[in-house]
Amino acid sequence: MSPNATDRIRVVLGSASSGRLRVLRSAGIDPTVIVSDVDEDALIESLGSDAAPDQVVTTLAQAKATAVAQRILDGAVEQIPADTDAVVIGCDSMLLIDGRLVGKPHTPERARTHWRSVRGRSGELMTGHCVHRLSGGAVIGVASAAAVTTVHFSDADDAVIDAYVATGEPLEVAGGFTIDGLGGWLIDGVDGDPSAVVGIGLPLVRRLFADLDVSVADLWRTARATPGAATAHQ
C-alpha cells in the first residue's frame, strides 16, 4: 500500500473506555471515538452457556466494531464521511476465573465479593479485538482475535478491598480492577501483554492491521500523539 493511500486512513475506536483511548494516544495514534450501542448482556445470553470464553469476548468486539462501521457507512457519523478510508476497532474484556467470565461488577457489593474471592489468586483477562477496514463506502476486510493475559492478584485484606471499592474505580471495569489506576497497587504481576489488560492489546492490533494491509508505522506519521488520562477496560 502506498504512503499516500495510508495517509488517508482514519482510525476509529468503537469504545467509551478512556483506558483504551489513552493506550492508543500514548502509542502515537489519536483515534476518533464512536461508542457503539450494543446490548452486551443480551448478546452474551444469545451465545449460550457453552460458548468458549474467547468466543464470547471476540463476538462482543465484533458486534461493537460492526455497529460502529455500519453507522459510518450509513452516513450517521458527522465527523466521518461514509466513503472515508478507515479502520474501526472494537474491543471487549472479561476476567476468566473458576471457569466463569466476570464482567463489570456495577455495584459495591458485587465488587467487594468479587475481590474477596480473587485475592491471592490468578485469573485470565480475556480481551476480544475486531478491526473493520472501510474504503469507498464499504467494508473491505475484517480481522478479529482474542488476547489472553494472566493477572496475579495480591492477597489484599478486607480493609484495603473496602477502601478500593469505596473509590468507585472497580465498579465499571472488567473483572473489577485496573492495572494502570488505583488497582495497580493490588496487582502483583501479569504474564502477557500489559496493554491488553488495560483493554486493547497493541501487539494483537498491529497484527490485525497487517492482516488488512494496514501498517501501523504509517499511521504514526499522521497521528497527533497527545497523552490522555484516566483508565478503564470496558
Rank of each mutant, 00 (worst) to 15 (best):
V56T: 10
I97A: 12
V151Y: 09
A61W: 01
I80T: 07
R133D: 04
T149K: 10
W185F: 14
G176M: 03
D213W: 15
P194L: 13
L24E: 05
A217E: 14
D39V: 02
V102K: 08
P3I: 04
S144Q: 10
V165K: 13
D7P: 01
I161E: 13
P31Q: 01
V33A: 06
L212A: 01
G48H: 13
S2Q: 15
A210V: 00
R22C: 06
D155W: 00
V68K: 00
I89K: 06
S93A: 11
F153A: 08
I179Y: 01
A163F: 05
L60E: 03
G14V: 02
I44M: 15
T178K: 14
G181R: 06
D50H: 15
A196R: 00
D180K: 03
T231Q: 10
A138G: 08
W220Q: 13
P81W: 02
P203I: 00
V205R: 07
A51D: 01
L13Q: 06
G181Q: 14
T150S: 09
V139Y: 10
M94K: 03
H132A: 12
D50V: 15
P31A: 12
E169D: 08
L134T: 05
S122D: 11
A232H: 14
I80F: 10
G189Q: 01
D213V: 01
H106Q: 15
G120T: 05
G201E: 09
R112M: 04
W220C: 05
Q70D: 15
G48K: 06
D83E: 15
G141Q: 11
A63I: 07
D41G: 13
A61L: 04
H129T: 00
F209V: 09
F209I: 05
R224G: 06
A217K: 01
S17F: 04
H129V: 06
D85T: 14
T178I: 03
D213M: 11
A210N: 02
L73M: 02
I140C: 09
V38Q: 03
V68S: 08
S36V: 04
S135M: 03
S117G: 10
L204D: 03
A76N: 15
G192V: 00
L125D: 08
D191H: 03
A138N: 14
T127C: 09
I80N: 05
D213H: 13
L208Y: 00
G184R: 09
T113M: 10
A147S: 11
D85R: 15
K104Q: 00
M1S: 14
T32P: 09
K104W: 07
V102Q: 10
V160G: 05
S144M: 02
L96W: 04
D37R: 13
G28K: 00
V88C: 04
T150R: 08
A86S: 07
D162S: 14
V57Y: 00
H233N: 14
D188I: 02
S49I: 06
A217D: 11
Y164K: 13
S122P: 13
T59F: 11
G192H: 07
D50I: 01
D218K: 12
I9V: 11
D155H: 00
V23F: 11
A111R: 13
L21R: 08
A145P: 11
A163M: 13
L73K: 03
A52T: 08
R22Y: 07
S46Q: 07
N4W: 15
